[in-house]
Amino acid sequence: MTALIQLKNISKHFVTDEVETHAVNQINLSITQGEYLALSGPSGCGKSTLLSLLGLLDSPSEGTYHLTGLDASSLNRNERAKIRNEKVGFVFQSFNLISDLTVAENVMLPLTYQKGLSKQTMMDKVNDVLQQVEMSHRTRHFPSQLSGGQQQRVAVARALVNDPAFILADEPTGNLDSKNAEAVMQLLNSLHQKGSTIVMVTHDPRSAECASRQVEMLDGQIIRDSLITQTAAPISAAI
């Protein structure tokens, strides 16, 4: 199967106060269409940095990154923005909804950066994804009027609205209670069942058990990469 994502010798170095940190060091990774990959490891191991590189939120210091066969490491800022807009959906630990925008406007945000979409088309897509995450009754609310779980469901809807090639989730249950965490994990599971490619960062091994593939990192390097044959039980069971 053709790899959706292909990383070769990818490194990311940060220099702060004249100290160089190797957040990601010489990583090789290939992700195929439809995979549900859990990226785990202790704090500071480089998971989030790797996720940022995968989502083109940051550019690597070294190495090459091929996304659907395209060399993403040589793209300029605008080309990277276009790919983020069309092919990537992000779900963050802290939801990252814009407080000044309503639920519908937050979800619509990626579509507003695409050309040629009518307002009606955008609204249809928004309503569709909000229904998927069972938030269609809160379209006119502002994020501050929602619970954490509801905010994360809106964030998932925003990640889905542009019909992305893959979803990147950075500790999506980190700020949620167990009930809401389960609901979000189920939502990701169901997306995976429908064929979505998901890369999820988690430091919690129990959340990682939901994935079809587990990659474990330490000190900026992959120390374990294993396939899980059976989809895990719901996270509530693990918790």
């Binding site: 605008n78 276009k82 069309e86 992000f90 990252n96 909804l97 945000l109 990626p110 542009n162």
Partner: peptide, 16 residues
């Protein structure tokens, strides 16, 4: 700045 980060994460260009 954080909002700018969110907007750029979902595909906004510098110009946007």
């Amino acid at each position: 700045t954080h909002e700018i980060g969110v907007r750029r994460a979902v595909g906004a260009t510098d110009r946007n």
